[in-house]
Write a protein that binds this DNA or RNA. Sequence first.
DNA 1: GCGCCTTGTAATCACTGTTTACATAACGCG
DNA 2: CGCGTTATGTAAACAGTGATTACAAGGCGC
Lengths: 203, 203
Amino acid sequence: MIQTKPRDALRHGNLKEALINYTLNAADDGMLADLSVRKAARELGVSPGAAYRHFPDKNALLQCVAERGFDSLATAFEHTVPFDSTAKDAADARKRFAALAMAYVSFAGAHRELWRLMFGPFGLGPSGASDRPSTYDWLGKCLSELANCDIIAPPRPEHQFFAWSAIHGMSDLQGSPALRAQPIAASVERQCELIICALAAQS
Amino acid sequence: MIQTKPRDALRHGNLKEALINYTLNAADDGMLADLSVRKAARELGVSPGAAYRHFPDKNALLQCVAERGFDSLATAFEHTVPFDSTAKDAADARKRFAALAMAYVSFAGAHRELWRLMFGPFGLGPSGASDRPSTYDWLGKCLSELANCDIIAPPRPEHQFFAWSAIHGMSDLQGSPALRAQPIAASVERQCELIICALAAQS
DNA sequence: GCGCCTTGTAATCACTGTTTACATAACGCG
DNA sequence: CGCGTTATGTAAACAGTGATTACAAGGCGC
C-alpha cells in the first residue's frame, strides 16, 4: 500500500523500508505465516541475498515490524485522545479513558496478526522499546485525569496494571467463539465503566 | 519426559502420541519455533514420512497440541478448585475465585509457548473445542457462587467477560518489562479483589 | 492360510533461510 | 576530474524443510 519513494529502478532506493512494508501488508492480509524472505525479495524484484544486507535474519525483520506496530499504536493514541485540555470535566475524563481503551481494542482487532507479533516471542513486551510514550504511560495519564476529577483515588501501579490487564484481555479475547453475539465496540465503553467502578471503590 | 508405552520397537506402537509429547516438550523448552516434523521423526527414530500417517500436515500437529493445552488447563482447574462444597461461605467463594485466577495465570506463565499456541492463529479461541468445561464455564460457576453469597449481583454475560478479560490480560502481560518489580503470584489475589469490587458495584 | 488395512520406509520435489564470492553504483576527497 | 571506499545488489551454493509418492512389511479378522 504505502509506497516509499523508489528514487531509482536499479539500486532499488529503499529496500529496507520496502521489506518492512511488504511484511506489514502480509500481516494485515493474515499471511504472516506464509511470509518468506525469498518470496518478499522476489516480489520486490530483488535477489534473496539483498534482503540480508538490511536484516541479519528473518527474525530481525519481524522484530522490526513489531516495533512499527507499537509506533502505529502510539500514533493511534495521539489521534484519538488529545491531552491538551486541562479542564477537570468528569465526563470528559471518562470519555477519554474509553477512547483510549477503544483505540487499543480496535487496533488489536484490525491488525490481528501484527498484534500477535508485537506481544509474541519477539515481544519487546509492551514497552514497545520505542521513544514514544507506551500504553502504560497513556493509561497513567488517563487515570490521573480521572483522579483529578475525584472519580477514582490517585492511581497506584497495581491499579494501572489492573486497567491495562482488563483492556488487554478484551483485545485478545474479542472474536472468541464464546462471545460470538457480543458486539465489541458497544461493550468497550461498558467494560471501561466496570474498571472505573473497581478503582473508585479503592478509596 | 512423559513416555507413552512404546509397546514395540518396530512399528513404534504409538507414534502419534509420541509426536504430541515431543511437541509439548519442545514448547515447554521454548523451542517451538525450531520444531520440525523431520527432526521430531528423526529423534523418535522414525522416517519423516511416518509422521504424515498421523497428521495431514504440521499445522494439524500444532493444533492437536493446542487442544492438549486446553485439556491440561481444564485438569489444572479441577485440581485447584473443588466444587463439591455447597456451603455458602463468602470467604470460601472468594478464595475459590482467586484460586481459579491463579491457576489460569500460573498455567500461562509456566507454559508460555504452549499458551501462545492455544490462543494463537490456530486458536480454537478459548472455547477449547474440548468436551470438558472451558474457562468461561468455570468462571461462570465461580461468579454464581459469589452471587449466592450476596457478594456480587447474579452475573450477566458482560460481567463474566469482564472477569475473564482481566484475568486473561494478567496472564498475557505478566513478565512484561513495565511490571518488572511486581511479583505476579502475590498480586493475583489483589487483582481478583478489584474484579469483585467492580462487579459488586453493579447492583 | 489369505486378504486387507494400518503403519512404516525410501526417494523425491519444490522451497526455504542463510552464506559466500563477486560485481557495480554512489559518494567523498585529492 | 579520477580514485578508492562503502553501501548495495547479484549469482550460486549449502543444508534443512514440508509434503507427496510408490512401495514394503507387520497385524488383524475370517
